[in-house]
């Protein structure tokens, strides 16, 4: 069993969101970067759990990014995973990122490719679906559960107001979210071991972007909260009914 886990980096969830260069670039100065939580907590940890059940499993990590992503990749290796591949390519266009991962996936002949549900900075939720189409294999999105029985995967996916259960023969691309696994913290042995695990850097394949970000904006500031006295909750209900017309 060969699993490929797609790892991306994202600003720490408490980072201040601001933009520079005439609002065309994220203000990255002083920002702490973390592994995108969906990739770490769900996709990677589930892959590690599957390897714990079947030790013959091999886990590869892939990241498309610049050299500044390497600390994140090492942290992911410390959690688990056997080796990592970084495609030396910096892009904000989902299609060109997916094309890079597809090239790696074709070479590696993986049985299972896991992504996070979405990146917390770009919120595309797109890479997994693109990858599946580029590789001509099925895609199950927003999965909350994934089990393997030989080469058959059983997957639960979120739908409005519930879940759907399906099965598919491998290979398969699955995007992972909460429910899939529990967050883990790397231990000392993992951290030490990660230093010597292979981290291969490869050059990108040609892929023209389909989109380009022309600028960012911050949401308009709120007018400020209208406070109602705790003795008069009926006034709040009146405001919601008459002023905000909500019910």
């Amino acid at each position: 069993m060969k699993i490929l886990v797609c790892i991306s980096k994202t600003p720490d969830t408490t980072a201040k969101i601001a933009f520079v260069d005439n609002n065309t670039k994220f203000a990255a100065d002083g920002v702490q970067w973390i592994i995108n939580p969906y990739d770490e907590w769900y996709a990677l940890v589930r892959a590690i759990e599957l390897k714990e059940k079947d030790p013959a499993t091999v886990i590869h990590l892939v990241n498309v990014g610049g050299a500044d992503t390497e600390p994140i990749i090492r942290k992911a290796l410390a959690l688990g995973g056997d080796e990592a591949i970084r495609v030396n390519f910096d892009s904000q266009d989902s299609f060109s990122i997916a094309s890079q991962i597809a090239a790696i996936a074709k070479d590696g002949a993986y049985d299972l490719i896991l992504t996070g549900k979405e990146t917390l900075d770009f919120n595309g939720a797109s890479i997994g679906g693109m990858l599946a189409e580029l590789l001509d294999i099925p895609f199950i999105s927003l999965a909350t559960k994934l089990d393997l029985n030989g080469t058959i995967a059983t997957v639960s996916r979120e739908i409005e107001g519930g879940e759907e259960v399906a099965e598919a023969a491998l290979p398969l691309v699955v995007s992972c979210q909460k429910g899939m696994a529990e967050q883990r913290i790397p231990n000392m042995k993992g951290i030490m071991g990660a230093r010597t695990k292979p981290l291969k850097v490869v050059e990108p394949v040609a892929a023209d972007p389909l989109t380009a970000i022309v600028g960012f904006e911050l949401p308009p500031a709120k007018a400020g909260v209208k406070l109602v006295s705790a003795d008069q909750p009926e006034e709040l209900v009146r405001l919601l009914h008459e002023e905000a017309k909500l019910f």
Binding site: P11, I17, F19, L120, D121, F122, N123, T211, A212, I213, V214, G215, F216, E217, L218, P219
Partner: peptide, 11 residues
């Protein structure tokens, strides 16, 4: 983008 904290204009 940024989980509701900002918007991007995408061409």
């Amino acid at each position: 983008v940024f989980s509701g904290k900002a918007f991007a204009n995408v061409n």
